[in-house]
């Protein structure tokens, strides 16, 4: 990934890159933290840095690889700052409690189920979480996931099946059932 000096491109070009890759950035950071707000903050910070690079005239040959790499670094930096803030207790160990507003009763069961899923997701390897996030949040197929993560599609398929199987077993053990209306 080499950068060269050139004239800054138009804002429309930048917005196109944002539209194309911002969700992927969010997904990878979310897979790291399992926190949508943190992922959104880091995604925006990543594209802000990309914007500054463009304003300074640095040509980024592969913007997708650049933003994914910067987002991963920012997510790790956030891990260090979170350690200072929470000590040895990362925020996701606090049962995923977010927000202060009182939840409506009909949403409580759903949130409890999602809390169980989040808890089981924390037990998975970060690479498996990335695959699951790209598959179910962005609805990417195996080849698209392989392209983002720069790994073999066969490996993506195997890891996706294994992670799904593991989650199904754990959620069954927890007594989680899905019903359709």
């Amino acid at each position: 990934m080499k950068s060269r000096r050139k004239q800054p491109p138009h804002q429309a070009d930048f917005e196109e890159i944002y539209e194309r890759h911002s969700r992927e950035v969010w997904a990878l950071v979310y897979a790291r933290w399992l926190n949508a707000d943190i992922a959104l903050d880091i995604m925006q910070e990543t594209f802000l840095r990309l914007w500054r690079q463009w304003q300074e005239g640095s040509e980024i040959v592969n913007p997708r690889a650049w933003v994914l790499r910067v987002a991963r670094n920012l997510a790790e930096d956030h891990a260090k700052s979170a350690f200072r803030r929470y000590g040895t207790q990362p925020p996701q160990t606090m049962n995923g409690v977010e927000g202060r507003e009182i939840l409506p009763l009909d949403g409580m069961a759903r949130d409890e189920t999602f809390g169980q899923i989040r808890k089981e997701m924390e037990q998975l390897a970060p690479a498996d979480r990335e695959i699951l996030t790209l598959r179910y949040a962005l609805e990417y197929d195996t080849s698209q996931i392989a392209e983002v993560l720069e790994i073999n599609p066969t490996a993506v398929h195997m890891r996706l099946s294994r992670a799904r199987q593991r989650l199904a077993e754990r959620l069954t053990a927890q007594g989680v059932k899905e019903t359709h209306e």
Partner: peptide, 24 residues
Amino acid sequence: SNMTMMPNDEQRPDVDVLLHDYFQ
């Protein structure tokens, strides 16, 4: 879909639907 906690339920959850709903 509507997810509920059903302890000791023998029915296996459709993990695809659960994960899709969760991530969405």
